[in-house]
């Protein structure tokens, strides 16, 4: 009804009313684009995040209504849960080994590829392929065979006269096979490094070599500093990803995290608590600890970044 009344108004006083009206309808149109995301964000992300914070203070087990038990979950996690500390140790060992190795490989090969050699697109595609496949169950299956007692790796070692152990089922080696699986997927950070290297103008190197800087000096004084934003980006993305690793450990250990919990990634432990034992309150507390670790890591990286990341603007 108001619209019919407003029609003469807009003619007489077009400025004010039509402006407000247009602003409102513009906002409505904008929100009509945003609506699927808004529903998803509120219903599937924000709501569940808050709900899991609440559940982490309860003894929820899916069968009965959750009862608030205060900080009991967190207390048990930190003071009376050897598996938690063990899975932390496994996960941190994995992150600390896998991420730097992977990035070092990625950077090294990106620098070789940036030398202007023929066949770059082919090499780049071949190196990238494992990154694309790595998360799938099929590759975890393959890994299980490669590092078995009579697997491919030991056959190759046999040529050189070594008798390798059963890598997968020996708890002192099993985690390292997963580190290798992660390093094997260095292709996607390599592509990002390669794109970053292309941004460095060649005349910087020319000037440096005229000044007598050798290759190592050039790498330390030019390449690395100019590449730090890309290093920073890759470092954060890969570290967060490594904290969340799940599938390979699950397949290789048949869901147990074995042998003797040597591949019990934090996410695997969380899965077991939540979906094998249905201790969902406890698993929610574990999830929040993971969130806090990732948030602290990210915040720390950003805070320290101004001391070591050089932005060009």
């Amino acid at each position: 009804m108001t619209t019919t009344a407003q029609i003469p108004l807009t003619i007489i006083e077009p400025e004010k009313t039509s402006k407000r009206w247009r602003g409102l309808s513009r906002a409505l149109v904008a929100y009509s684009f945003l609506i699927p995301w808004l529903i998803g964000f509120l219903g599937l992300t924000l709501g569940p995040t808050l709900a899991s914070l609440y559940l982490s203070f309860t003894n929820f087990d899916l069968l009965q209504d959750p009862q608030v038990i205060g900080l009991a979950n967190y207390q048990r996690i930190f003071t009376n849960d050897a598996k938690f500390w063990h899975s932390m140790q496994v996960t941190f060992t994995y992150v600390i080994l896998a991420v730097p190795l992977k990035l070092a490989f990625a950077l090294g090969l990106a620098m070789v590829l940036n030398r202007g050699i023929a066949g770059l697109p082919l090499y780049r595609a071949l190196f990238y392929l494992p990154s694309l496949l790595g998360a799938s169950v099929a590759i975890a299956v393959l890994w299980r065979q490669l590092f078995a007692k009579d697997g491919l790796v030991n056959v190759v070692l046999g040529f050189f006269g070594f008798a390798g152990p059963s890598w997968i089922s020996d708890p002192s080696y099993s985690l390292y096979t997963l580190v290798l699986l992660s390093v094997w997927q260095f292709g996607s950070p390599m592509i990002i490094f390669l794109a970053g290297l292309r941004q460095i103008p060649p005349d910087v190197y020319e000037a440096a070599s005229i000044d007598g800087a050798n290759k190592v000096q050039q790498f330390i004084k030019i390449t690395l500093p100019l590449l730090t934003p890309v290093v920073f980006f890759n470092f954060i993305v890969q570290t967060i990803d490594a904290f969340k690793a799940f599938t390979p450990a699950f397949i290789i250990s048949e869901g147990t995290g074995g042998p003797i919990d040597s591949t019990l990634f934090y996410t695997l432990y969380l899965y077991q608590e939540g979906f094998a034992y249905f201790r969902m309150g406890y698993a929610s507390a574990l999830a929040w600890i993971l969130l806090i670790i990732i948030a602290c890591f990210t915040a720390f990286s950003f805070l320290t970044s101004r001391y070591w990341v050089h932005y060009n603007d």
Binding site: F41, G43, L44, T45, G47, P48, T49, A51, S52, L55, L62, I240, F243, K244, T267, L270, G274, M280, A283, S284, L286, A287, W288, L290, L291, I294, A295, T298
Partner: peptide, 18 residues
């Protein structure tokens, strides 16, 4: 939300879908 590990929303989402 880009940084949020999906483990945090996992259990309430599961309860919701259940």
């Amino acid at each position: 939300t880009l940084m949020l590990p999906y483990h945090v929303t996992l259990i309430p989402q599961y309860v919701l879908f259940l």
